[in-house]
Write a protein that binds this DNA or RNA. Structure first.
Lengths: 338, 338
DNA sequence: TTGTAGGCGTTATCAT
DNA sequence: ATGATAACGCCTACAA
């Protein structure tokens, strides 16, 4: 294997110093164009390749952005990631992606690993059960940009990228009410997470505004896994309340409920109307098509990416970390028709 | 900001040499337990943190594995990634993930970037239009493990992880024939890609075996984007052939076709039977549910991960790069019932 | 405009 | 079992 050639090799063959070579390669203003040209052409000729490890050591930065998501294999998260990757890549950063698998413990480990490996910034969407945030302290202390996406918490100097879940919940619920629903059920994910608790607030507000009843039976907290569909159906059938409107915290679970309800001979939307959340591709493919809230995952990714990059470039002050709220949108399809 | 403490700081306060500290921290056998204990406890006390940049420079490796996928936001790919991430993480490697966005040019750039950034290995699922593989030459020359997943090519010393697409295509097609279909249509993706061309071979074999006709009209090459559904429907309606069986190269497109065909008053499966591919979550949620080929994405990821790790550990010889073919499975649902 | 030399924090090879 | 010292390859004051 041909030995790797360094700036010293170049320096020697060119009869200049290593410093000059380094500066030439980096287009430093204090080097004459002539010298630069000589160096660069010789570098190409000899197949010089800069050693990132040395650069990193010298600059103490890695040109790398860490990302922690709950799960890689979710259509929403991978869409967010696609947006982040696009921006990061264009800006010359690499993405180190890891998944917490919805566990705070794994999230802690990931945060530490990424910190140790010297990421220049960190993007996080929180795990299911994350209740403590000490594992981010190092980032904040060392002024490493830290940005939360979708599943967020409020930490000093950290940006957040979210949608207005409360308003979205309100809009979805009010839509059901406008369609004539009187007995609503909100099927939620873990209420410790901002996204689900906020939607609940919106749900409750809409219910209250229209003088409908809200008590325990109008809320079902679920882990939203396919295995929990039965539990949801049981709740709907056995609570004694004649539910006629469902607001479900994500489309996938909504689609499963839809399917099961049809099996139980409910007519959708005649008997029960349903609104999901996310505008997952499946929402437009099930029968009847599923009304939902459009969740701009890709845009979230783009914005998150832009936000980190500008913080890294110093074009945004570290202190001035801001919170971006994206526009959501109610998409009315068949499952909530009158 | 408190200055970072190094092994020299430790060495000084402990009255030993930096080398001793380094060896203690790395549990080197030639250091007495006593010294190790002293060093380690002092390290904790002072909050010592190893500098990955320096380690990388010194060892000329990054503990990092590069991944290039066509698209992050595909349920299949993100599932594969989830598997890879799990294994890599357990082995102490970080994943740098980038997407080619189905473009060979972007794939080239990604390959170069990752190479420059010093990944210890590279996992690739090829872009739509990749026809030249020179951008991987550096990896091979420098014996950096290179593994292809799903969308593969045959390069010397490179492992591949695939399923037997030809057999899967054969099985799917023969199933349709067994259900009584006489006029089959294979709706394919870009035939330059191994996955689609192999499935076509299987399709053709099954058709030939059962003495059915195969000519141009029995094959429709498509980009499988939602925008191309109309074209597919037109083909089915206007070709003059009374198609009664569809083998579609992925579930998402199959689901879209299903929906459109229903709109056009075709009865599924009575008029036309359909088999998709991938066992996408969607396939079990549409009406009627979609028969499909189960595509073990997560397992592919796991195996790909294990394969790299063992190559990196030297437990598999670089030369002995092997090709792993995973088991697929026909899942019969409503869309292909008699 | 260019050269010099020290630093970045570890690891590894010789000695001792 | 430990220490000294030279890599690792690049960057960047400071000097010239």
């Amino acid at each position: 294997m041909d030995k790797r050639i360094t700036i010293y090799d170049l320096a020697k063959t060119l009869g200049v110093s290593a410093g000059t070579v380094s500066r030439s390669l980096n287009d430093h203003p204090s080097i004459s164009q002539k010298t630069k040209d000589r160096v660069i052409s010789k570098a190409n000729e000899l197949g010089y390749k800069t050693n990132k490890f040395a650069v990193n050591l010298s600059k103490q930065k890695s040109n790398t952005i860490g990302v922690i998501v709950p799960k890689l294999n979710s259509i929403f998260m991978s869409t967010v990631l696609a947006g982040i990757e696009k921006i990061a890549n264009e800006a010359g950063y690499n993405l180190i992606i890891s998944q917490s698998l919805e566990s705070m413990e794994k999230e802690k480990i990931n945060a530490k690993t990424l910190y140790d490996s010297g990421v220049d910034a960190l993007l996080v969407s929180l795990a299911y059960d994350t209740s403590n945030f000490d594992h981010f302290a190092n980032y904040i202390k060392n002024k490493i940009p830290l940005i939360f996406i979708d599943r967020v918490t409020n930490l000093p100097n950290c940006s957040t990228i979210i949608i207005d879940n409360k308003l979205a919940g309100f809009v979805a619920t009010e839509h059901l009410i406008a369609q004539g629903c009187k007995n609503l059920l909100y099927i939620s994910g873990n209420l410790k997470q901002n996204v689900y608790s906020e939607r609940l607030k919106g749900f409750q507000e809409a219910v209250a505004k229209h003088n409908l009843i809200f008590n325990n039976a109008n809320l079902l907290e679920s882990d939203l896994s396919p295995g929990s569909v039965k539990q949801a159906i049981t709740h709907i059938k056995d609570t004694g309340i004649p539910f006629d409107g469902l607001f479900v915290a994500n489309d996938s679970f909504a689609a499963h409920c839809l399917k099961e309800l049809k099996k139980e001979n409910y007519k959708i939307p005649q008997d029960i109307k349903i609104v999901g959340f996310n505008n997952d591709p499946i929402s437009d493919l099930v029968t009847p098509t599923l009304s939902t809230i459009n969740y701009p995952g890709y845009e979230m990714g783009i914005l998150a990416g832009q936000s980190v990059i500008s913080q890294l470039n110093g074009s945004i002050d570290f202190q001035a970390a801001n919170s971006i709220t994206l526009r959501h949108e109610l998409i009315i399809r068949e499952s909530s028709l009158k």
